[in-house]
């Protein structure tokens, strides 16, 4: 069964190299595909370079979309990483 899930996160910090790495690690634990959208650009959450290249800055909002059997859990995991970014 495929489930779609979507949510938005206000970034407490820039989405730079270290949090991007943590996003990939979080997303990789799930089967679901997770996408991050920012300013019209979309990055697969498993691609650290693409996530960094979003250029998302502190205080802005990114939209997360997950598709797959564990979409909700995957989204929760990525939201947790982004919300805790420093």
């Amino acid at each position: 069964m495929s489930v779609n899930s979507e949510t938005a996160v206000v970034l407490p910090a820039h989405l730079h190299a270290r949090p991007a790495g943590q996003v990939v690690q979080a997303a990789a634990r799930f089967q679901a595909d997770v996408e991050i959208e920012y300013a019209g650009k979309v990055a697969n959450a498993r691609g650290v370079l693409a996530v960094m290249a979003l250029g998302a800055t502190a205080g802005t909002t990114v939209t997360l979309r997950a598709t797959g059997p564990d979409a909700a859990e995957a989204l929760d995991a990525v939201v947790a990483v982004l919300s805790a970014a420093q």
């Binding site: 991007a20 790495g21 990939v24 990789a28 650290v48």
Partner: peptide, 15 residues
Amino acid sequence: VEGAMAAAVIAGTGA
């Protein structure tokens, strides 16, 4: 730099 970064992060997930 970019290739090593992409590969390293994926490798760290057990890929």
